[in-house]
Each structure stands twice: as structure tokens, then as C-alpha cells.
Design a protein around this nucleic acid. Structure first.
Lengths: 258, 258
DNA sequence: CGGGGTATTGACTTTGCTCAAGAAGCGTGG
DNA sequence: CCACGCTTCTTGAGCAAAGTCAATACCCCG
């Protein structure tokens, strides 16, 4: 199967590619799979010799919790367009596994092919380093958020981040997003008990900030949510930060009109 | 001033360098400074055109806390041998600043020089990617620890990590380490109030796990500390994990002898 | 209509925060 | 050498946030 267009779009952002280059890229063999909810996309402790890109759906980085057995911690969420195991390219083992949340589509590329790409288009190396660095920025932000916000604001921050990222790839719009996470899984992301997450959800609903029905979320008051969460999208990179600025302006004008 | 030997050691780990290469490396101009406690080594929101390596002391990544003004969060600690702003090489702005904790020595290298190095020794690119990826692994671990351990165990985990990392560069040995952090700063690392940190410190002392005098820490019961913290050094990379295994064996045999 | 998992709610416990005050260390100036 | 002021460390008491346990409601699906 051929390389996905999402992948190509990423490459294009990073450097000029001629028609020739595009043809060559499209000739690269890849493997595409569909993963049902709960499927392990990238196993722990493994050097699979290939990297994966999520082309549809959401996936989570899963760690076993320290202490109580059976517990899990989610250290990051992937959406379409993300490399899910970039580390595998440079590290011998993964310290976590990646699991599909809803239904996913994943595309695998062998490391040899990637390295070939790098040899041919050295500018892509910058793209990979950039991705690694971006990932670090998100982790840092999660640490800051976990340390300084309490449950409702913490949850609100997660919603703001996900909406911004999903809107950036066109997978969410009009202040609606679909979030294929159980409350138990939200708890694993936020580091709370699922009961506590439930109360945080109710709190956001009670404040009239959003609308939450199963996996469908509608944001009713974007500026309010952003303010509660102290959300500042700078850490997501200049592109998404710009989108966010536009969105906030629109929401503000909507508010002032109403 | 010439490039530091620490830097060269890192490069050597990554590929074979001949006498010729070494001479060329030593000819690269760098700037070395001494930073007093509290000095900002790398400012926020800045693309300084150079990267820094810590050659002595400890430094912290500082973020403003969300919510209460004036609060801070520390998202990572650097020790000698760490690149303190690798992100700056690939990212236009830093989302945090880096501040000296004790007295530090820092060495700056201009990005041009670094890029020259990469052109000449492409294998070094892997080193940088490796570093970025390692950093991500540490952030993930901190998220997991924050989500699953409570105060004493959380603090214990930090001590275990720091001792392992410091021992890896020869800056700690014999289960003694010096930690130039105030309890307030520890609180900023762990996400607690400084009062709560104080109680956690006392708890570890009361359990006879360690000895804490100002900035000098002596670990009295390494296996006990490791167990309480659920410390598993895998996330620090194979080198340090091996060191830890050796250390734990020694400590075990010490215990069984006594 | 029943069964399994998820969501929701209540009552109670544990953990951690805040405020406040005292103790200990340390550098400065008298 | 001592007194003073500063900062950090330590401890106590009360409060707020989050966890646990248990029970019920809901919902999808067979």
C-alpha cells in the first residue's frame, strides 16, 4: 500500500517537493491496518523495525501504574497525523505501549524506508527532530497543568487541547468534538479516580461550559472554558496557536453579538 | 574557549572519532560561563542562536504556574552533561526558562557550529535525536509517577532518579548525594506545597530510609527506598539501568552481610 | 427482558493545602 | 562577640480536594 496523503502533507510543510519527489514518495511501500478499540498498536519493550502514523481515530500511550497492580496511566493522546512511535526509530525499546481508543487506521513504514527518505531529503531530519521536541513540549505542559490545576480546570485544559489539535487537522469544528474515551480512561489521563472525573464532568456541565453526551462533546462557552483551564496554545506550536487565536476572536464576537 | 571534555565524551559514545577528529572538535570555539544560584541560563521566549550544555552543577526547567500568580512549576532537572536547551536548536522559542540551582558551569555552542558538526559527522544527528527522545521518556515517567504515587513515594522516586543519574556521571557515590534544592523548589518539582514536602522528607527520615541535612543526603536503605518509590531505571536508558542493577546487588549484599 | 459494562450519586476516609506560629541557621553590622 | 533581620525549616490545627466503598440508574445489545 502507498504512503498516506497525511504523511505527504507533513513532509510538504517542511520543504519544497517537486512532482518527481512526490511520485517517488508515493512509490514507498507501507502497511495500513484498521485497529478496533483496545487493540495494541505498538507493543511495549519491542523494537519492531518500523514506525507508525495514525491516519484516523485516537490512540493512547499506556503505562502500568506504579503501586496497585492492574492500574494504568495514560501519558499522552495521539490523533490522526501523529507519529505514534517515533521513539522506536532512535530508541531500542519503547517504555510504553500504544493502544487504539476508538476505531483507528494506522500506517506502518519500515525504518529502512524512513532512513532512505532522510538520506534523500535531509531536511526531513529537522521534521523528525521537530516532532520529538514538540512531544516534549506537550509533556512539559501536562506536568505543569497537573501540578497547578485541580480537577475541573484540569479536565477543561484537556478538552481545550484536544479540540485545538483536532480542529487543526479538520477532525473537529463548530465547537463540537467526539472523544472516544471512557471516564475511566479520562481518569487514567488526568491521574484521578474515575468517580472524581465524573464529578469534574458534571461540574463543567453545571457551569454551562459544555454539553457532554456519551463521546460527543459540544463546547457551549469557549472563552469560559479557556479561562477556567488557563489554556494557552503556545506549547502546541505556532500553527495551532494561530488557529486558536482566530477561534477565540470568533467566539468573542459571537458572545458580544448575543 | 574550547569545547568541554564532557561534550567530547558524549560524542565518542556515539561513534568512533580519530585523533584528527578530536583535534578538530577541540578547535571549535565555545563560551563558558559560571552561573550563581538563581541565574537564568536560558531565557523564555527566545531563540538565542546557541545551545548550552551544563558542565557542572544542577539547573531546573521553570514554568509559571497556571492560576495563582507568582507560582512556579519545575518540569525537569538538569545535571552536568545535559544539553539544557536542545529544543532551541529545532524550535523557535522555548516554552520554559532554565535556571541555575546551585552554582553552575555552562558552555554555549553556536547553532552554526553544531550544524557544521552534524554535516561533518552525520552520526551525531542520531545522538541529538536520542537525547530528545530520552527527555521524552523522563517526562512520561514523571507523569506516571505523579499520577500513581503519593507524596513520600513520589519524593523517594525523585531521589532515586537523581542519585542514579548523578552516579552515572560520577557526581555522586557511596549512596550520598548533594541536592541544591530548597524544600520550596522540591515542592515545585513534585507539585505539592512546601509544607507537604517537609512532611514527606520527615516521613522518609522517620522510616530510616535516608539522612537529610541541608543539601546533603545520605541514603541509608537503598533497596527500601527503591521499593517504596517503585523505582525502575529502565526509562533512564540502558547505561544507567545497568549501573542501578549493580548498585542494587551491592546494597543487597551489604544488607545480607550486616 | 435480562445481563454486562458504564455513568451517577451518597457517605465516609485519606491526602494534601492554607494559615499561623515557633525554631534553627546564617550573614551583616554594631 | 552579640544582636538583628532574613530566610528556611518545622510543627500544629482546621479546611478543601480527592480517594474508596457501596448502591443505584442507565444504556446498549443479545
Amino acid at each position: 500500500m502507498a504512503i498516506s496523503e497525511l504523511f505527504i502533507q507533513h513532509l510538504q510543510k517542511c520543504g519544497e517537493l517537486g512532482a518527481n519527489d512526490l511520485a517517488r514518495l508515493r512509490a514507498i511501500p507501507t502497511t495500513r491496518i484498521t485497529a478496533l478499540p483496545g487493540t495494541v498498536i505498538v507493543p511495549r519493550q519491542d523494537n519492531p523495525g518500523r514506525s507508525a502514523m495514525l491516519t484516523q481515530g485516537m490512540a493512547a500511550q499506556i503505562h502500568p501504574a506504579l503501586g496497585r497492580a492492574g492500574g494504568r496511566v495514560i501519558s499522552g493522546l495521539h490523533i490522526a497525523g501523529d507519529f505514534v512511535n517515533l521513539d522506536g526509530l532512535v530508541q531500542d525499546r519503547m517504555t510504553h505501549e500504544v493502544v487504539a481508543l476508538g476505531c483507528c487506521e494506522v500506517e506502518f513504514i519500515h525504518h529502512e524506508e524512513l532512513r532512505d527518505l532522510f538520506d534523500r531529503y535531509p531536511v526531513l531530519i529537522r521534521l523528525i527532530m521537530r516532532r520529538l521536541s514538540d512531544g516534549g513540549a506537550i509533556y512539559r505542559r501536562w506536568l505543569v497543568v497537573a501540578a497547578s490545576l485541580r480537577s475541573s480546570a484540569h479536565l477543561a485544559h484537556l478538552i481545550c487541547e484536544l479540540y485545538t489539535r483536532l480542529a487543526g487537522i479538520g477532525a473537529a469544528r463548530n465547537l463540537r468534538l467526539s472523544l472516544p474515551l471512557l471516564q475511566r480512561e479520562l481518569a487514567e489521563v488526568l491521574g484521578y479516580s474515575s468517580i472524581h472525573v465524573n464529578r469534574a464532568v458534571r461540574d463543567l456541565r453545571d457551569r454551562g461550559l459544555l454539553h457532554w453526551n456519551g463521546s460527543e462533546i459540544g463546547i457551549l462557552n469557549w472563552p469560559g472554558l479557556v479561562h477556567l483551564a488557563r489554556f494557552d496554545p503556545d506549547y502546541l506550536g505556532p500553527d495551532l496557536a494561530r488557529n486558536h487565536a482566530r477561534l477565540t476572536d470568533t467566539a468573542d464576537s459571537c458572545l458580544s453579538e448575543s
